[in-house]
Write a protein that binds this DNA or RNA. Structure first.
Length: 254
DNA sequence: ATGACTCCCAGTGGGAGA
């Protein structure tokens, strides 16, 4: 089966591209981030016509996540249980024994800011919840826009980005602690082209120059690890006219 | 250069993203 994550940066704007992508590159399930619309505006009909069931958790203007799947997901959870949050950032659901957690990590804006502190608190709460979730569901995938470049090789210019948001040691430490509960970065299970990114700034011809960051990830549990056959970044949608600034990441599991 | 683009809500600009 194929699973994917994609930050669409406004589902209202990107719906035609999402539908075209699902038709060209069918997946069994995909988690979406940055819907930027409320559930009453969610395009359930169009997505159902494309052959997908949708679980949505939207918000006006900012954030918003969804889980699309061929078969309807059950045991759906919105946001991190026990962590009070005004922002719609997590949606989880089960497809049989497979637990899928889709997440839009806070951006953090700038190290030391209130938003940065929120990002770190959020990541700790996610880890605490996922530890229990993993115990209950050994076959677990955490996919989404992590807004963290885990290592320098995930950054086009590590010197310029050193200590900047997405690349601070604190964020990377939180990322490693999240992995340490029993997850593995599916992308790094395979040999990958150097300079592999999932996000490119809209400015400065960054995509054409391939100047980006790898901040969208698929982490799989140890139980799933032997069944992961491939993981790739699909740059095709980033070449569209009016693209999202993020590209999808696709993982193939037996 | 605290830039550059895109999206949103707004309302003829400004915040946020990353």
């Amino acid at each position: 089966m194929k699973l994917a994550t994609w930050n669409v940066n406004s589902l209202a704007v990107r719906l035609p591209q999402l539908l075209a992508w699902l038709e060209a590159s069918p997946v069994d399930a995909v988690v979406l981030q940055e819907l930027k619309l409320t559930d009453d505006k969610f395009p359930f009909d169009e997505i159902r016509a494309a052959g997908y069931e949708a679980q949505a958790f939207g918000q006006k203007t900012y954030n918003g996540v969804a889980l699309l799947s061929r078969a309807p997901a059950d045991a759906v959870v919105r946001n991190i249980p026990g962590f009070a949050d005004e922002q719609a950032r997590v949606i989880a659901g089960s497809l049989g024994a497979l637990r899928i957690v889709g997440a839009y990590f806070p951006n953090g804006q700038a190290p030391g800011s209130d938003k940065f502190e929120y990002k770190l608190r959020w990541m700790r709460a996610l880890r605490d919840w996922l530890e229990a979730e993993l115990a209950a569901h050994p076959q677990l995938v955490l996919a989404g826009d992590f807004n963290v470049a885990p290592e320098d090789r995930d950054v086009h210019d590590p010197v310029a980005w050193a200590g900047q948001i997405h690349c601070t040691e604190e964020e990377r430490e939180h990322f490693r602690k999240l992995v340490a509960i029993g997850l593995v970065d599916a992308f790094r299970l395979f040999e990958q082209p150097p300079k592999s990114w999932t996000w490119w700034d809209y400015r400065n011809l960054a995509f054409r120059r391939n100047q980006g960051l790898r901040i969208d990830h698929v982490l799989v549990s140890e139980a799933l690890r032997p069944r992961v056959n491939a993981c790739m970044i699909d740059k095709a949608p980033r070449r569209n006219e009016r693209p999202s600034d993020h590209a999808p990441v696709v993982v193939t599991i037996d």
